[in-house]
Design a protein around this nucleic acid. Structure first.
Lengths: 140, 140
DNA sequence: CATGGTTGCTTGAGTGAATCAAGCAAATTC
DNA sequence: GAATTTGCTTGATTCACTCAAGCAACCATG
């Protein structure tokens, strides 16, 4: 299990709940990925492939180096969850697509990662709206 | 930058804001650690050392293998931020303490990691209470 | 067109986090 | 006092991540 991104001290109660939330969320994400024998990074990339797209687009969206994506995609490909096809428009580029098995695993991941669904589900529709508004405001 | 723990699809708005929140939080934590040339895991361990404690206690609190803690502490020790002293009560065990430099770096990390403080600070005291209550309820 | 720069991706080297298995020494239990 | 358990470290392995370098293919511009 990955170490939490949790500071040592907390000044307000609201902050403390926030830390808890992030911690529980991250662990749930990791656990859901692990159920399918995926790393969090692999689950994340797999989830972005509803449409076929290039390596560079993935790197940019996910905010990391292209070579990082290469590695992760290579592993997903080795697992048979993804294929890299040549891009007919640009022979340098490669388009990544989920295989049917990849679709299946991705679907099962979405089912297994219940955290956000469950958490939001504990709130009434009104409360959900309040939460949304408060978090939007807090995020600035 | 680490890949986000973000699923591919989102069903409700509240969920989407939650994903954003976690994403922004994690990136802010990582960035604050990076400012001090620490990894997130190192910053996390350093933050737990307000009192001296054993390796095992750290591992248990942070929910990971003891050997993982060993590595991280070894690196923190190499950076001069932490020392491992023998435990007079139990000669198998070792107590980890921050050095003065460790205290300083930890303090500067706490200052640099403004995310939660800033986010909560955008809310009025009433709103903070509402948020706390909603998140508590959502966390179950 | 040629040639020079840019883009898209991969490779290689290096670091760190994480896990598991194995080991060792000190403590505990019986 | 022998067997077990506890606390930690070591070693091996995997993966994520970054940076630098490289290689094609694309795209100017003259």
């Amino acid at each position: 299990m990955a170490l939490p991104n949790r500071p040592g001290t907390t000044s307000s109660e609201a902050e403390a709940v926030l830390f808890d939330l992030v911690d529980v969320y991250d662990r749930a994400y990791e656990a859901a990925a692990a159920e399918l024998s995926l790393s969090p990074a692999q689950a994340c990339v797999l989830g972005r492939l509803d449409e076929r797209r290039g390596m560079g687009a993935l790197a940019e969206e996910l905010g990391c180096d292209a070579s990082n994506i290469t590695q992760i995609v290579v592993r997903l490909e080795a697992l048979g969850l993804v294929v890299r096809e040549p891009n007919p428009q640009d022979r340098r580029a490669r388009l990544v697509t989920r295989t049917p098995r990849g679709d299946d695993v991705n679907q099962r991941f979405a089912t297994a990662f219940t955290f956000a669904r469950t958490a939001v589900g504990r709130l009434s529709p009104d409360e959900q709206d309040q939460l949304t508004a408060l978090l939007r405001k807090a995020l600035g």
